[in-house]
């Protein structure tokens, strides 16, 4: 029984180096989910239409379903699993939980990663900039309003002077 040829690939995901054997033509999405068991990254189309598979490559949001895994060698990949700092959730995660930024939670990893890239580059975005940045992430549940509010709350938390004990 012939098996598809695989090549070794070195990826850096959430700060960890990971080596995988990857069949030619596999997307980053497939490698993350199937080979690295990082199933936090979702998919809604695998055609670049929905944004559910968004991860960060060198800090920029990319659609992992459209990216070949071997194009990512030598880059830094961030996924939702790396968003929290150990047991400290990212302000976006807290804000989404608190302000209704998720319902089914399926679009959420992609939305969070896109929002992280936005806030990393601009910690005080206007509503229009939030809409612009997230307009490629479809969500069927929330009607978006509470996502926008969650991002705003996260931005406020990031900008607030650190409180004692937090």
């Amino acid at each position: 029984m012939s098996l598809p040829e695989k090549t070794p690939l070195l990826l850096n995901v959430n700060g960890e180096d990971m080596e995988v054997l990857v069949a030619a033509g596999k997307t980053l999405l497939e490698v993350l989910r199937e080979d690295l068991d990082l199933t936090g990254t979702k998919h809604g189309c695998e055609l670049g239409e929905c944004g559910a598979c968004t991860v960060l490559r060198d800090g920029q949001p990319v659609l992992s379903c459209l990216l070949l895994a071997n194009e990512c060698e030598g880059t830094l990949i961030e996924t939702v699993e790396g968003l929290a700092d150990k047991d400290r959730l990212h302000p976006l995660q807290l804000a989404f939980a608190e302000h209704g930024g998720l319902q089914c939670g399926y679009c959420t990893p992609g939305v969070l990663m896109t929002a992280k890239a936005l806030l990393d580059g601009n910690s005080r975005p206007h509503r229009s900039q939030i809409r612009e940045a997230l307009s490629g992430n479809l969500c069927r549940c929330t009607g978006y309003q509470q996502i926008i509010e969650s991002v705003e709350h996260a931005a406020a938390a990031i900008n607030a002077p650190a409180k004692a004990g937090s």
Partner: peptide, 10 residues
């Protein structure tokens, strides 16, 4: 179920 969803664990 919010925290398991925002961390990708669901």
């Amino acid at each position: 179920d919010a925290l398991s969803k925002v961390t990708g664990q669901t």
